[in-house]
Simulated assay, not measured.
Amino acid sequence: MIIKAVNGKFPSIPQDCFVAENATIVGDVVLGTECSVWFNAVIRGDVHFIKIGNKVNIQDGAIIHCTYQKHPTVIGNNVSIGHNAIVHGCTLHDNVLIGMGAIIMDNCIINSNSIIAAGAVVTQNTIVESGSIYAGVPAKKVKDIDQSDFAGEIGRISNNYVMYASWFRE
């Protein structure tokens, strides 16, 4: 794994996090507890800060970055960022699923209990409504989420990734 300082700022990674050996985390990055950063994922806090909550999984090939002196990236708790997704200079609130290959652009806000579908492109300055699914290019709201089903599902995914990470520590 590559974990290195940039401009005197070193990533903060709790002991209970899993970081794959070929993941990269640099600069002003703070991870919460029980996070996992999977193979070939990159978290690059070189031009602004990146703050990541608890039980966040950043899956294989995902890229987390920010916008120079304008937009940090802030990620809440129980967030799943799918394989090869790009999250750039935006805010993801708690209990959010970002689908595989989705792109979240600068200054977007993804409110809690929401899903961004695989392959969706959430264009700059978009505010995603809480409790909704956005899909397409550009991403638009396609439906509301049944919150009773969703709450259990997001918790299950977050807990599964904590379990998967434990397999690599054995």
Rank of each mutant, 00 (worst) to 15 (best):
M1P: 14
K4D: 11
V6M: 11
N7F: 14
G8V: 01
K9T: 05
K9W: 03
F10P: 00
F10T: 09
P11L: 04
I13W: 02
I13L: 06
P14K: 05
Q15K: 14
Q15L: 11
D16L: 04
D16Y: 06
C17A: 05
C17Y: 09
F18K: 06
V19N: 04
A20F: 06
A20T: 08
E21R: 12
A23W: 04
T24C: 12
I25S: 06
I25W: 02
I25M: 04
G27D: 01
G27T: 02
V30G: 03
L31E: 09
L31Y: 13
L31P: 08
W38Q: 02
W38N: 02
F39M: 10
N40M: 13
A41K: 03
A41D: 00
A41G: 01
V42P: 04
I43V: 15
G45M: 12
D46L: 11
V47Q: 14
V47H: 14
V47I: 15
K51Y: 05
K51W: 09
I52D: 05
G53C: 08
N54D: 14
N54Q: 05
K55L: 05
K55W: 02
N57G: 14
N57Q: 14
Q59T: 10
D60E: 11
A62I: 06
A62E: 02
A62L: 06
A62F: 07
A62K: 02
A62W: 07
I63P: 00
I63H: 00
I64N: 04
C66T: 15
K70W: 07
T73F: 12
I75E: 00
G76V: 00
N77D: 15
N77I: 07
S80A: 14
I81K: 03
H83G: 07
H83R: 07
A85C: 11
A85E: 05
I86D: 02
H88C: 05
H88A: 01
H88G: 06
G89Y: 04
G89T: 03
C90D: 02
C90T: 03
H93A: 07
N95V: 00
I98R: 05
G99T: 10
G99V: 09
G99N: 06
G101T: 11
A102C: 11
I103K: 10
I103H: 06
M105C: 13
M105E: 10
D106N: 11
N107G: 07
I109L: 15
I110Y: 00
N111K: 10
N113I: 01
N113W: 01
N113G: 04
I116W: 09
I116T: 09
A117Y: 10
A118D: 14
G119Y: 10
A120V: 08
V121F: 13
T123S: 15
N125T: 14
V128K: 01
V128I: 15
V128P: 04
S130R: 08
G131D: 01
G131T: 01
S132V: 12
A135P: 13
A135C: 15
P138S: 14
A139E: 08
A139I: 10
K140S: 15
V142F: 12
V142Y: 11
D144Q: 08
D144T: 07
D144Y: 11
D146G: 00
Q147R: 15
Q147E: 13
S148D: 06
D149H: 04
F150R: 03
F150T: 03
F150I: 03
F150E: 00
I157K: 06
I157S: 04
N159D: 14
N160I: 01
Y161P: 09
Y161E: 12
V162D: 13
M163W: 15
A165R: 05
A165T: 13
W167L: 15
R169W: 00
E170P: 01
